[in-house]
Nucleic acid binder design. Structure first.
Length: 602
RNA sequence: GGGGCCGUAGCUCAAUUGGUGAGAGCAUCGGACUGUCGAUCCGAAGGUUGUGGGUUCGAGCCCCAUCGGCCUCGCCA
């Protein structure tokens, strides 16, 4: 077999005259009967081969039989292309390889889709033939970025004294948070492992074990319905450190993020990265992961709305709700129907009852309102309203009246949608942010107890410790999320390292001693044996890569992704198993049960 | 569990209000051709319109069910 000397995509004018061997897949061939041209592709690019019957009649003859995607090796001489024959579209377009020896390493069936048109091909077909889609430069570019991030992270953490340590994939089910994937045990009948939702407890126990600094690039599993930006199995860059506080964790990971952006995109991230409190994020953006590439802050106008004659507003406030909204510098962009159909649908999808709007018209410095609900505002209230938003002529005020949580939930995506429509930011830019001072708990009205906002091992800020007894709702936690362009790419916290505080938190979460013992007993026991103060963070590698590659589809950054039903179209997983396998596991499916004991008719 | 969009040749799409024989580009196959690079030119082949019912003289088009893909609410950090 001819041994490769150069990658396709590597050769330049300066290589002219060299004898080289390139290998790869035939991207296209152009057969002129006499001269034959190939574009050969490998991971690094394309090279044009020329087959001339006068140079090598055997190679030329063989080349004429070749088809797209066949695997070939060609030995020849690098030659500058003639005047006017260069191809500026190719990095190697200044040269070509005149083939002297040629081997067909493998033939290939005609692909089910054309690789150069694959971006327009049905994703279903591409997933079924993932190995063909993977040959495309765009797809490989994303995998390359992902690799750069992981390899950089490994170098970075090694430099900083972290150890990469693996934690079990077959772990204990702790039915908190997301649904677990279960794995039946053969040796211990009727018991199950769970695939880890994250290595949370293991990494904390590593700290108790004196490891001091840990990281892992680790697969995590959560059996919940997928979305464009999440699927059931995903990868975290998982980190834990001992004897640190919030500032330490933020500093070391700000630097990591800055290095990633610098190395992958050449983008300088200004350090320190800005911090924003959870309270500020919710008030101004309605969400704990605000996109701060643009301003257009939300404003609470409950105090003004209360004084209007608009019953929707006044009764909402009487019922403990708020009126909150934003000012869209719309000009003529949104028609009445855009607002009342498209944008209203958007907010109602998130639970709001409607979208109130009014368009500002300034006459001699005094505002009047066109359309919508302007008539419910007196002149004085109107002036205050315009002042509150800093609205200008042509702006449209959009308001949601509801419970604060619903208003926020509806307004946050509305704000992003409007900013995108009105092009209020450069889509290529990045805005980084640490969100801090999260509440430790949120009240769960259905269950009449508190829920952890982060997770039950998050430490309160020390000065709020006293409120564990008196005012749990207002305890701040030592948690932090890093947000880029409205996307949370990582989050973590300083952990509770004192058993009595941990117990207190379980009490507030309404987790009984018995439940705590059953689920986390091993962990609580570890805390009893001298746990150092510690904290950590986990980054979502998939989302990180999505941001760096500018895609909105998580399947684009995963080599072998799954569909919305969690299936792999290439391997056809999940699939049924032999009854023998089930027997060994002491399992029987309901399907089999029904086969044995059919339900009576009707 | 709910809502929305989609499914026609290998791929991407077309097909008037339900009306003759479901078309085109690319890919494929055969032929021609000395500089192409989305090669070009000539020719050929390629279809259970996702599947199953129904309405109708007649269904790619209308109705019902079902399968699959994507987006989304719930769910999920």
């Amino acid at each position: 077999m001819l041994k490769r000397t150069h990658h396709c995509g590597q050769l330049r004018l300066t290589d002219a005259g060299k004898s080289v061997v390139v290998t790869g897949w035939v991207q296209s061939y152009r057969d002129h009967g006499n001269l034959v041209f190939f574009d050969v592709r490998d991971r690094e690019g394309l090279t044009q081969l020329v087959f001339d019957p006068e140079t090598s009649p055997e190679s030329h003859q063989l080349a004429r039989t070749v088809r797209c995607e066949w695997v070939i090796a060609a030995a020849g001489t690098v030659r500058p292309r003639g005047e006017g024959l260069e191809n500026p579209k190719l990095a190697t377009g200044q040269i070509e390889v005149v083939v002297e020896r040629f081997e067909i390493l493998n033939m290939a069936k005609t692909p089910p889709f054309e690789l150069d048109n694959a971006s327009r091909t049905n994703e279903e077909t591409r997933l079924m033939y993932r190995y063909l889609d993977l040959r495309r430069p765009e797809v490989q570019q994303r995998l390359r970025v992902r690799h750069r991030v992981t390899s950089l992270a490994r170098r970075y953490f090694d430099e900083k004294g972290f150890w990469e340590i693996e934690t079990p994939m077959l772990a204990k089910s702790t039915p908190e948070g997301a649904r677990d994937f279960l794995v039946p045990s053969r040796l211990v009948r009727n018991t199950f492992y769970a695939l880890p939702q994250s290595p949370q407890l293991f990494k904390q126990i590593l700290m108790v074990g004196g490891v001091d600094k840990y990281f892992q690039i680790v697969r995590c599993f959560r059996d919940e319905d997928p979305r464009a930006d999440r699927q059931a199995e995903f990868t975290q860059i998982d980190v834990e450190m001992s004897f640190v506080d919030v500032d330490d964790v933020i500093a070391i990971h700000s630097e990591l993020v800055a290095r990633i952006w610098k190395e992958v995109l050449g983008v300088e991230v200004a350090l320190p990265i800005r911090r924003m409190s959870y309270a500020e994020a919710m008030a101004d953006y309605g969400i704990d992961r605000p996109d701060v590439r643009f301003d257009m802050k939300l404003k609470d106008i409950s105090d003004l709305a209360r004084q209007t004659t608009f019953k929707v507003f006044t009764s909402c406030i009487e019922n403990g709700g708020v009126v909150k909204g934003l000012c869209a510098p719309s000009g003529e962009f949104y028609s009445r129907s855009d607002i009342e159909k498209t944008l209203t649908t958007l907010v109602t999808d998130f639970g709001a009852k409607g979208l109130a709007w009014l368009k500002v018209k300034m006459e001699d410095g005094a505002p009047t309102f066109i359309g919508g609900i302007g008539k419910f505002f007196s002149d004085d209230l109107g002036r205050q309203l315009v002042q509150r938003f800093g609205a200008k002529d042509g702006d449209v005020l959009m308001l949601v009246a509801d419970q604060e949580s619903i208003a926020n939930k509806a307004l946050a995506p509305l704000r992003c949608r409007i900013a995108r429509d009105l092009k209020l930011y450069d889509p290529k830019s990045f805005a980084f942010l640490w969100v801090v001072d999260f509440p430790l708990f949120e009240w769960n009205a259905d269950e009449k107890r508190y829920d952890s906002l982060h997770h039950p091992f998050t430490a309160p800020v020390p000065e709020d410790l006293g409120k564990l007894e008196t005012d749990p709702a207002h305890i701040r936690s030592q948690a932090y999320d890093i947000v880029v362009n409205g996307s949370e790419i990582g989050g973590g916290s300083i952990r509770i390292h004192r058993p009595e505080v941990q117990q207190k938190v379980f009490d507030l979460l309404n987790i009984s001693r018995k439940q705590a013992e059953d689920r986390f007993g091993f962990f609580l026991k570890a805390l009893d044996y001298g746990a150092p103060p510690h904290g950590g963070i986990a980054f979502g590698l998939d989302r990180l890569t999505m941001l760096l590659t500018g895609t909105e589809n998580i399947r684009d950054v995963i080599a072998f992704p799954k569909t919305q039903r969690g299936q792999c179209l290439m391997t056809d997983a999940p699939s049924e198993v032999d009854s023998k396998q089930l027997d060994e596991l002491n399992l029987r499916t309901q399907k089999h049960l029904h086969a044995v004991e059919p339900k009576p008719e009707n």
